[in-house]
Design a protein around this nucleic acid. Sequence first.
DNA 1: GGAACTCGCCAC
DNA 2: AAACGTGGCGAGTTCC
Length: 456
Amino acid sequence: MKSTATTMDAYQLLHKGALALARAERQGIRIDMEYCEKKKAHLTRKIEYLTKKVEASPLYSAWSGLYHNKTNIDSNPQLSRVLYKSMGITPPKVTGNGEGSTDEDTLGKIEGVPALEWILEMRKLRKIRDTYLEAFIREQHDGYIHPFFNLHTVRTYRSSSDRPNFQNIPKRDKEAKRITRRALLPRPGHMLIEADYSGIEVSISACYHKDPVMIKYINDPSSDMHLDMARQIYLMPDLLKEGPGKLLRQSAKNGFVFPQFYGDYYANNAAGICEWAKLPSGRWRPGQGVASPTGGTVSDHFISKGITSYDQFVEHIKAIEADFWGRRFQVYSKWKESWVAQYQKRGYLDMYTGFRCSGIMKKNEVVNYPIQGSAFHCLLWSFIRLDEIMRKENWDTRLIGQIHDSIIMDVNPDELDYVKQVTTRVATEELPAAWKWINVPLSIDIDEYGVDQPWI
DNA sequence: GGAACTCGCCAC
DNA sequence: AAACGTGGCGAGTTCC
Protein backbone atom coordinates (compact mmCIF):
# COMPACT_ATOMS: atom_id res chain seq x y z
CA MET A 1 0.00 0.00 0.00
CA LYS A 2 2.71 2.44 1.04
CA SER A 3 5.50 1.94 -1.54
CA THR A 4 6.73 5.49 -1.05
CA ALA A 5 9.69 6.90 -2.89
CA THR A 6 13.39 6.75 -2.03
CA THR A 7 15.95 9.55 -1.93
CA MET A 8 17.09 8.42 -5.37
CA ASP A 9 13.54 8.76 -6.69
CA ALA A 10 13.48 12.30 -5.29
CA TYR A 11 16.79 13.04 -6.99
CA GLN A 12 15.49 11.69 -10.30
CA LEU A 13 12.41 13.90 -10.03
CA LEU A 14 14.59 16.98 -9.49
CA HIS A 15 16.97 16.01 -12.29
CA LYS A 16 14.31 15.29 -14.89
CA GLY A 17 12.27 18.25 -13.64
CA ALA A 18 15.19 20.64 -14.09
CA LEU A 19 15.66 19.43 -17.67
CA ALA A 20 11.96 19.68 -18.56
CA LEU A 21 11.67 23.15 -16.98
CA ALA A 22 14.82 24.27 -18.82
CA ARG A 23 13.13 23.39 -22.09
CA ALA A 24 10.13 25.53 -21.11
CA GLU A 25 12.49 28.37 -20.11
CA ARG A 26 14.24 28.21 -23.47
CA GLN A 27 10.88 28.24 -25.27
CA GLY A 28 9.70 31.34 -23.40
CA ILE A 29 6.48 33.33 -23.56
CA ARG A 30 5.72 35.84 -26.31
CA ILE A 31 5.28 39.44 -25.18
CA ASP A 32 3.32 42.21 -26.88
CA MET A 33 6.09 44.81 -26.71
CA GLU A 34 4.14 47.53 -28.44
CA TYR A 35 1.31 47.11 -25.94
CA CYS A 36 3.68 47.09 -22.95
CA GLU A 37 5.31 50.36 -24.01
CA LYS A 38 1.97 52.02 -24.76
CA LYS A 39 0.35 50.88 -21.52
CA LYS A 40 3.39 51.85 -19.50
CA ALA A 41 3.17 55.42 -20.86
CA HIS A 42 -0.55 55.45 -20.18
CA LEU A 43 -0.05 54.37 -16.56
CA THR A 44 2.70 56.95 -16.12
CA ARG A 45 0.31 59.71 -17.20
CA LYS A 46 -2.32 58.49 -14.72
CA ILE A 47 0.26 58.33 -11.92
CA GLU A 48 1.40 61.89 -12.72
CA TYR A 49 -2.19 63.12 -12.59
CA LEU A 50 -2.72 61.49 -9.17
CA THR A 51 0.60 62.92 -7.97
CA LYS A 52 -0.61 66.44 -8.80
CA LYS A 53 -3.85 65.84 -6.90
CA VAL A 54 -1.96 64.66 -3.83
CA GLU A 55 0.43 67.62 -4.06
CA ALA A 56 -2.53 69.99 -3.86
CA SER A 57 -3.93 68.33 -0.71
CA PRO A 58 -3.72 69.40 2.96
CA LEU A 59 -1.93 66.11 3.68
CA TYR A 60 0.89 67.16 1.37
CA SER A 61 1.22 70.55 3.10
CA ALA A 62 1.88 68.79 6.39
CA TRP A 63 4.18 66.32 4.62
CA SER A 64 6.38 68.92 2.90
CA GLY A 65 6.42 70.97 6.10
CA LEU A 66 8.20 68.03 7.72
CA TYR A 67 10.49 66.88 4.95
CA HIS A 68 11.02 70.00 2.77
CA ASN A 69 13.14 69.14 -0.26
CA LYS A 70 13.38 65.50 0.89
CA THR A 71 9.62 65.05 0.53
CA ASN A 72 8.95 61.80 -1.33
CA ILE A 73 5.39 60.84 -2.10
CA ASP A 74 6.52 57.21 -2.63
CA SER A 75 7.97 56.89 0.87
CA ASN A 76 5.87 54.93 3.33
CA PRO A 77 8.09 55.70 6.34
CA GLN A 78 7.55 59.41 5.60
CA LEU A 79 3.80 58.90 5.26
CA SER A 80 3.72 56.98 8.54
CA ARG A 81 5.46 59.82 10.39
CA VAL A 82 3.19 62.50 8.86
CA LEU A 83 -0.02 60.63 9.73
CA TYR A 84 0.79 59.17 13.12
CA LYS A 85 3.29 61.64 14.61
CA SER A 86 2.66 64.98 12.94
CA MET A 87 -1.12 64.81 12.41
CA GLY A 88 -1.69 62.83 15.60
CA ILE A 89 -3.82 60.07 14.09
CA THR A 90 -3.82 56.85 16.10
CA PRO A 91 -2.46 54.03 13.91
CA PRO A 92 -5.28 51.53 13.22
CA LYS A 93 -2.53 48.90 12.86
CA VAL A 94 1.22 48.65 13.46
CA THR A 95 3.90 46.71 11.61
CA GLY A 96 6.06 43.96 13.09
CA ASN A 97 8.60 46.59 14.15
CA GLY A 98 6.00 48.67 15.94
CA GLU A 99 5.76 51.43 13.32
CA GLY A 100 2.34 52.73 12.27
CA SER A 101 1.30 50.72 9.25
CA THR A 102 0.58 52.27 5.86
CA ASP A 103 -0.80 49.25 4.04
CA GLU A 104 -4.04 49.36 2.05
CA ASP A 105 -6.20 47.96 4.82
CA THR A 106 -4.89 50.47 7.37
CA LEU A 107 -5.10 53.59 5.19
CA GLY A 108 -8.64 52.54 4.24
CA LYS A 109 -9.67 52.85 7.88
CA ILE A 110 -8.50 56.48 8.21
CA GLU A 111 -11.28 58.96 7.59
CA GLY A 112 -11.09 62.63 6.60
CA VAL A 113 -7.87 62.39 4.56
CA PRO A 114 -9.04 62.07 0.93
CA ALA A 115 -5.47 62.10 -0.45
CA LEU A 116 -4.95 58.60 0.99
CA GLU A 117 -7.32 57.18 -1.57
CA TRP A 118 -5.27 58.73 -4.38
CA ILE A 119 -2.06 57.40 -2.83
CA LEU A 120 -3.53 53.88 -2.78
CA GLU A 121 -4.58 54.20 -6.42
CA MET A 122 -1.07 55.37 -7.36
CA ARG A 123 0.44 52.42 -5.51
CA LYS A 124 -1.71 49.99 -7.42
CA LEU A 125 -0.85 51.51 -10.79
CA ARG A 126 2.87 51.67 -9.96
CA LYS A 127 2.81 48.00 -8.97
CA ILE A 128 1.30 47.08 -12.34
CA ARG A 129 3.74 49.26 -14.26
CA ASP A 130 6.98 48.59 -12.37
CA THR A 131 6.65 44.99 -11.21
CA TYR A 132 5.03 43.57 -14.31
CA LEU A 133 5.06 45.63 -17.54
CA GLU A 134 8.56 47.08 -16.95
CA ALA A 135 9.89 43.67 -15.97
CA PHE A 136 8.47 42.11 -19.15
CA ILE A 137 10.15 44.81 -21.25
CA ARG A 138 13.44 44.51 -19.36
CA GLU A 139 13.59 40.70 -19.44
CA GLN A 140 12.38 40.08 -22.98
CA HIS A 141 14.67 38.94 -25.76
CA ASP A 142 13.41 39.17 -29.35
CA GLY A 143 9.88 39.56 -27.99
CA TYR A 144 9.93 36.55 -25.62
CA ILE A 145 10.45 36.46 -21.85
CA HIS A 146 12.20 33.43 -20.40
CA PRO A 147 11.23 33.15 -16.74
CA PHE A 148 13.38 30.80 -14.66
CA PHE A 149 11.74 27.96 -12.70
CA ASN A 150 13.92 26.97 -9.75
CA LEU A 151 13.80 23.67 -7.89
CA HIS A 152 16.60 24.40 -5.41
CA THR A 153 15.38 27.48 -3.49
CA VAL A 154 12.32 26.47 -1.48
CA ARG A 155 12.36 24.78 1.94
CA THR A 156 9.39 22.58 1.07
CA TYR A 157 10.84 21.43 -2.28
CA ARG A 158 8.25 23.42 -4.15
CA SER A 159 9.47 25.61 -7.05
CA SER A 160 10.08 29.33 -7.35
CA SER A 161 10.26 31.57 -10.42
CA ASP A 162 12.20 34.71 -11.22
CA ARG A 163 13.54 37.11 -13.87
CA PRO A 164 10.63 37.73 -14.20
CA ASN A 165 8.54 35.83 -11.66
CA PHE A 166 5.93 34.04 -13.75
CA GLN A 167 4.09 32.77 -10.65
CA ASN A 168 2.60 36.00 -9.28
CA ILE A 169 0.93 37.74 -12.23
CA PRO A 170 -2.31 39.41 -11.00
CA LYS A 171 -5.47 37.36 -11.14
CA ARG A 172 -7.85 38.52 -8.37
CA ASP A 173 -7.99 42.26 -9.07
CA LYS A 174 -9.88 42.61 -12.37
CA GLU A 175 -8.10 45.73 -13.62
CA ALA A 176 -4.60 44.53 -12.72
CA LYS A 177 -5.37 41.15 -14.27
CA ARG A 178 -6.56 42.64 -17.53
CA ILE A 179 -3.68 45.07 -17.91
CA THR A 180 -0.86 42.66 -17.08
CA ARG A 181 -2.09 39.51 -18.79
CA ARG A 182 -2.92 41.35 -21.98
CA ALA A 183 0.87 41.60 -22.42
CA LEU A 184 1.33 37.82 -22.67
CA LEU A 185 0.59 36.18 -26.00
CA PRO A 186 0.82 32.77 -27.65
CA ARG A 187 3.05 32.36 -30.69
CA PRO A 188 1.31 33.65 -33.86
CA GLY A 189 -1.48 31.28 -34.89
CA HIS A 190 -1.37 29.51 -31.51
CA MET A 191 -3.35 29.71 -28.26
CA LEU A 192 -2.64 29.50 -24.55
CA ILE A 193 -4.17 26.94 -22.23
CA GLU A 194 -3.79 26.45 -18.49
CA ALA A 195 -4.36 23.03 -16.92
CA ASP A 196 -4.67 23.16 -13.14
CA TYR A 197 -5.15 20.48 -10.51
CA SER A 198 -8.33 21.22 -8.56
CA GLY A 199 -7.76 21.37 -4.81
CA ILE A 200 -4.53 19.40 -5.04
CA GLU A 201 -3.24 20.40 -1.59
CA VAL A 202 -6.46 19.24 0.07
CA SER A 203 -6.28 15.95 -1.86
CA ILE A 204 -2.62 15.38 -0.98
CA SER A 205 -3.26 16.22 2.67
CA ALA A 206 -5.80 13.37 2.66
CA CYS A 207 -3.07 10.98 1.47
CA TYR A 208 -1.15 11.78 4.67
CA HIS A 209 -3.91 12.01 7.30
CA LYS A 210 -6.51 9.72 5.64
CA ASP A 211 -9.38 11.48 7.40
CA PRO A 212 -12.58 9.67 6.28
CA VAL A 213 -14.70 12.83 6.41
CA MET A 214 -12.24 14.68 4.18
CA ILE A 215 -11.96 11.70 1.82
CA LYS A 216 -15.73 11.61 1.54
CA TYR A 217 -15.78 15.30 0.59
CA ILE A 218 -13.18 14.60 -2.12
CA ASN A 219 -14.89 11.46 -3.43
CA ASP A 220 -18.43 12.82 -3.49
CA PRO A 221 -18.77 15.62 -6.07
CA SER A 222 -22.21 16.57 -4.73
CA SER A 223 -20.72 17.40 -1.31
CA ASP A 224 -19.03 20.74 -0.72
CA MET A 225 -16.78 21.31 2.29
CA HIS A 226 -16.64 25.09 1.90
CA LEU A 227 -20.41 25.39 1.55
CA ASP A 228 -20.92 23.25 4.66
CA MET A 229 -18.56 25.53 6.59
CA ALA A 230 -20.38 28.62 5.31
CA ARG A 231 -23.66 27.10 6.52
CA GLN A 232 -22.17 26.56 9.97
CA ILE A 233 -20.47 29.96 10.18
CA TYR A 234 -23.50 31.93 8.99
CA LEU A 235 -26.08 29.77 10.80
CA MET A 236 -27.85 29.13 7.50
CA PRO A 237 -28.38 25.35 7.18
CA ASP A 238 -29.98 25.68 3.73
CA LEU A 239 -27.44 28.07 2.19
CA LEU A 240 -26.97 27.55 -1.55
CA LYS A 241 -23.80 27.91 -3.61
CA GLU A 242 -25.48 30.18 -6.14
CA GLY A 243 -26.66 33.77 -5.78
CA PRO A 244 -25.84 35.67 -2.60
CA GLY A 245 -24.55 32.42 -1.09
CA LYS A 246 -21.57 32.48 -3.43
CA LEU A 247 -19.80 35.27 -1.56
CA LEU A 248 -20.55 33.69 1.82
CA ARG A 249 -19.08 30.38 0.64
CA GLN A 250 -15.99 32.22 -0.59
CA SER A 251 -15.61 33.95 2.75
CA ALA A 252 -15.77 30.60 4.55
CA LYS A 253 -13.20 29.09 2.17
CA ASN A 254 -10.69 31.96 2.19
CA GLY A 255 -11.43 33.33 5.66
CA PHE A 256 -11.72 30.10 7.62
CA VAL A 257 -11.02 26.75 5.92
CA PHE A 258 -7.71 27.49 4.15
CA PRO A 259 -6.26 29.62 6.96
CA GLN A 260 -7.15 26.80 9.41
CA PHE A 261 -5.33 24.28 7.19
CA TYR A 262 -2.26 26.53 7.25
CA GLY A 263 -2.42 26.69 11.05
CA ASP A 264 -4.27 29.94 11.70
CA TYR A 265 -6.72 30.37 14.59
CA TYR A 266 -10.21 31.67 15.25
CA ALA A 267 -9.46 35.29 16.18
CA ASN A 268 -7.77 35.94 12.83
CA ASN A 269 -10.47 33.94 11.06
CA ALA A 270 -13.24 36.07 12.56
CA ALA A 271 -11.49 39.20 11.30
CA GLY A 272 -10.97 37.65 7.88
CA ILE A 273 -14.58 36.59 7.48
CA CYS A 274 -15.85 40.01 8.58
CA GLU A 275 -13.62 41.65 6.00
CA TRP A 276 -15.21 39.50 3.29
CA ALA A 277 -18.73 40.04 4.60
CA LYS A 278 -18.07 43.75 5.28
CA LEU A 279 -19.09 43.43 8.93
CA PRO A 280 -17.68 46.07 11.31
CA SER A 281 -15.94 45.70 14.66
CA GLY A 282 -17.87 46.64 17.80
CA ARG A 283 -21.61 46.42 18.14
CA TRP A 284 -23.60 45.32 15.07
CA ARG A 285 -26.64 47.25 13.85
CA PRO A 286 -29.33 46.29 11.31
CA GLY A 287 -28.44 46.84 7.66
CA GLN A 288 -24.68 46.20 7.95
CA GLY A 289 -22.60 43.80 5.84
CA VAL A 290 -23.27 42.18 2.48
CA ALA A 291 -26.67 40.96 1.31
CA SER A 292 -28.03 37.88 3.06
CA PRO A 293 -29.83 35.08 1.18
CA THR A 294 -32.36 35.17 4.02
CA GLY A 295 -33.27 38.76 3.08
CA GLY A 296 -31.72 41.97 4.38
CA THR A 297 -28.04 41.92 5.25
CA VAL A 298 -25.82 39.50 7.15
CA SER A 299 -25.91 41.69 10.27
CA ASP A 300 -29.74 41.48 10.24
CA HIS A 301 -29.45 37.70 10.10
CA PHE A 302 -26.82 37.40 12.85
CA ILE A 303 -28.79 39.74 15.13
CA SER A 304 -31.88 37.56 14.64
CA LYS A 305 -29.75 34.58 15.72
CA GLY A 306 -28.47 36.35 18.83
CA ILE A 307 -25.02 37.36 17.60
CA THR A 308 -25.10 41.13 18.01
CA SER A 309 -21.44 42.19 18.09
CA TYR A 310 -18.00 41.40 16.69
CA ASP A 311 -16.88 40.01 20.05
CA GLN A 312 -19.78 37.56 20.09
CA PHE A 313 -18.88 36.56 16.54
CA VAL A 314 -15.30 35.80 17.63
CA GLU A 315 -16.69 33.44 20.30
CA HIS A 316 -18.91 31.84 17.66
CA ILE A 317 -15.90 31.20 15.39
CA LYS A 318 -13.96 29.87 18.38
CA ALA A 319 -16.63 27.22 18.89
CA ILE A 320 -16.60 26.39 15.18
CA GLU A 321 -12.84 25.94 15.26
CA ALA A 322 -13.17 23.52 18.20
CA ASP A 323 -15.84 21.60 16.28
CA PHE A 324 -13.78 21.65 13.06
CA TRP A 325 -10.81 19.81 14.59
CA GLY A 326 -12.47 18.08 17.54
CA ARG A 327 -15.36 16.51 15.63
CA ARG A 328 -15.49 17.09 11.86
CA PHE A 329 -11.83 16.44 10.99
CA GLN A 330 -10.73 14.63 14.13
CA VAL A 331 -8.63 12.07 12.24
CA TYR A 332 -6.80 14.90 10.46
CA SER A 333 -6.26 16.54 13.85
CA LYS A 334 -4.83 13.34 15.35
CA TRP A 335 -2.50 12.98 12.36
CA LYS A 336 -1.17 16.49 12.91
CA GLU A 337 -0.36 15.64 16.52
CA SER A 338 1.37 12.36 15.73
CA TRP A 339 3.19 13.87 12.73
CA VAL A 340 4.63 16.63 14.91
CA ALA A 341 5.51 14.11 17.65
CA GLN A 342 7.35 11.99 15.11
CA TYR A 343 9.31 15.02 13.90
CA GLN A 344 10.19 15.99 17.46
CA LYS A 345 11.50 12.50 18.10
CA ARG A 346 13.50 12.12 14.84
CA GLY A 347 14.41 15.70 13.95
CA TYR A 348 13.25 15.35 10.36
CA LEU A 349 10.21 14.53 8.26
CA ASP A 350 9.97 12.40 5.13
CA MET A 351 7.59 13.05 2.25
CA TYR A 352 5.93 10.29 0.24
CA THR A 353 7.85 11.67 -2.75
CA GLY A 354 11.23 10.75 -1.21
CA PHE A 355 12.26 14.19 0.05
CA ARG A 356 13.44 14.79 3.61
CA CYS A 357 13.16 18.06 5.54
CA SER A 358 15.41 18.46 8.55
CA GLY A 359 16.41 21.31 10.84
CA ILE A 360 14.42 23.38 13.29
CA MET A 361 10.77 23.78 12.29
CA LYS A 362 7.68 25.20 13.92
CA LYS A 363 4.62 22.97 14.32
CA ASN A 364 2.75 24.61 11.46
CA GLU A 365 5.76 24.16 9.20
CA VAL A 366 6.11 20.48 10.10
CA VAL A 367 2.47 19.89 9.15
CA ASN A 368 2.48 22.05 6.02
CA TYR A 369 5.76 21.11 4.35
CA PRO A 370 4.95 17.54 3.30
CA ILE A 371 1.58 18.59 1.91
CA GLN A 372 2.85 21.61 -0.01
CA GLY A 373 5.91 19.76 -1.29
CA SER A 374 4.15 16.57 -2.36
CA ALA A 375 1.35 18.49 -4.06
CA PHE A 376 3.91 20.31 -6.18
CA HIS A 377 5.68 17.04 -6.95
CA CYS A 378 2.44 15.75 -8.49
CA LEU A 379 2.53 18.74 -10.81
CA LEU A 380 6.23 18.29 -11.57
CA TRP A 381 5.78 14.60 -12.38
CA SER A 382 2.97 15.52 -14.79
CA PHE A 383 5.09 18.28 -16.34
CA ILE A 384 7.99 15.88 -16.94
CA ARG A 385 5.73 13.26 -18.46
CA LEU A 386 3.98 15.73 -20.76
CA ASP A 387 7.33 17.14 -21.87
CA GLU A 388 8.46 13.61 -22.67
CA ILE A 389 5.34 12.80 -24.73
CA MET A 390 5.45 16.19 -26.47
CA ARG A 391 8.99 15.58 -27.70
CA LYS A 392 8.52 11.92 -28.59
CA GLU A 393 5.44 12.70 -30.67
CA ASN A 394 6.88 15.87 -32.19
CA TRP A 395 4.10 18.18 -31.04
CA ASP A 396 4.08 21.75 -32.28
CA THR A 397 2.51 22.55 -28.89
CA ARG A 398 4.97 23.67 -26.17
CA LEU A 399 5.04 23.71 -22.37
CA ILE A 400 5.94 27.26 -21.37
CA GLY A 401 5.49 27.50 -17.61
CA GLN A 402 4.14 26.20 -14.34
CA ILE A 403 2.45 27.85 -11.33
CA HIS A 404 2.69 25.28 -8.48
CA ASP A 405 -0.51 23.42 -9.36
CA SER A 406 -0.96 24.34 -13.02
CA ILE A 407 0.80 23.98 -16.36
CA ILE A 408 0.66 26.66 -19.07
CA MET A 409 0.99 25.58 -22.69
CA ASP A 410 1.32 27.39 -26.02
CA VAL A 411 -0.87 25.17 -28.19
CA ASN A 412 -1.29 24.59 -31.89
CA PRO A 413 -5.12 24.74 -32.28
CA ASP A 414 -5.04 21.65 -34.53
CA GLU A 415 -3.57 19.73 -31.60
CA LEU A 416 -5.87 21.19 -28.94
CA ASP A 417 -8.25 18.27 -28.45
CA TYR A 418 -5.44 15.74 -28.39
CA VAL A 419 -3.31 17.84 -26.01
CA LYS A 420 -6.25 18.18 -23.62
CA GLN A 421 -6.91 14.46 -23.76
CA VAL A 422 -3.27 13.50 -23.07
CA THR A 423 -2.94 16.12 -20.32
CA THR A 424 -6.02 14.79 -18.56
CA ARG A 425 -4.82 11.21 -18.86
CA VAL A 426 -1.34 11.99 -17.52
CA ALA A 427 -2.62 14.06 -14.59
CA THR A 428 -5.55 11.91 -13.48
CA GLU A 429 -4.58 8.36 -14.56
CA GLU A 430 -0.86 7.94 -15.15
CA LEU A 431 0.23 9.81 -12.03
CA PRO A 432 -1.98 7.91 -9.53
CA ALA A 433 -0.92 4.67 -11.26
CA ALA A 434 2.76 5.57 -10.78
CA TRP A 435 2.42 6.79 -7.19
CA LYS A 436 0.47 4.20 -5.20
CA TRP A 437 0.27 6.38 -2.08
CA ILE A 438 -2.26 8.62 -3.84
CA ASN A 439 -5.48 7.29 -2.32
CA VAL A 440 -7.98 9.88 -3.65
CA PRO A 441 -9.03 10.75 -7.20
CA LEU A 442 -7.24 13.70 -8.80
CA SER A 443 -8.99 16.02 -11.23
CA ILE A 444 -7.92 18.91 -13.44
CA ASP A 445 -9.55 21.92 -15.10
CA ILE A 446 -8.35 23.19 -18.45
CA ASP A 447 -8.96 26.82 -19.42
CA GLU A 448 -8.51 27.90 -23.03
CA TYR A 449 -7.58 31.29 -24.38
CA GLY A 450 -8.35 31.80 -28.07
CA VAL A 451 -6.02 32.34 -31.01
CA ASP A 452 -4.10 35.64 -30.58
CA GLN A 453 -6.17 36.34 -27.47
CA PRO A 454 -4.66 37.40 -24.15
CA TRP A 455 -4.27 34.98 -21.28
CA ILE A 456 -7.14 36.34 -19.19
C1' DG B 1 28.20 52.54 -3.92
C1' DG B 2 26.54 48.17 -2.66
C1' DA B 3 24.64 44.93 0.96
C1' DA B 4 21.01 44.19 4.01
C1' DC B 5 17.03 45.51 5.93
C1' DT B 6 11.73 46.87 6.19
C1' DC B 7 7.41 47.32 4.16
C1' DG B 8 3.94 46.44 0.98
C1' DC B 9 1.83 43.38 -2.38
C1' DC B 10 1.44 39.95 -6.17
C1' DA B 11 0.76 34.52 -6.67
C1' DC B 12 -0.38 29.43 -4.89
C1' DA C 1 1.28 28.12 25.11
C1' DA C 2 0.65 29.56 20.59
C1' DA C 3 -1.34 31.52 16.85
C1' DC C 4 -1.06 31.78 8.52
C1' DG C 5 2.43 27.76 5.03
C1' DT C 6 5.72 28.94 0.49
C1' DG C 7 7.90 32.34 -2.64
C1' DG C 8 9.81 37.17 -5.73
C1' DC C 9 10.34 41.89 -6.26
C1' DG C 10 10.20 47.15 -6.13
C1' DA C 11 11.03 51.23 -3.41
C1' DG C 12 12.85 53.42 0.47
C1' DT C 13 16.21 53.43 3.96
C1' DT C 14 20.24 52.41 6.78
C1' DC C 15 24.73 50.70 7.42
C1' DC C 16 29.42 49.99 6.22
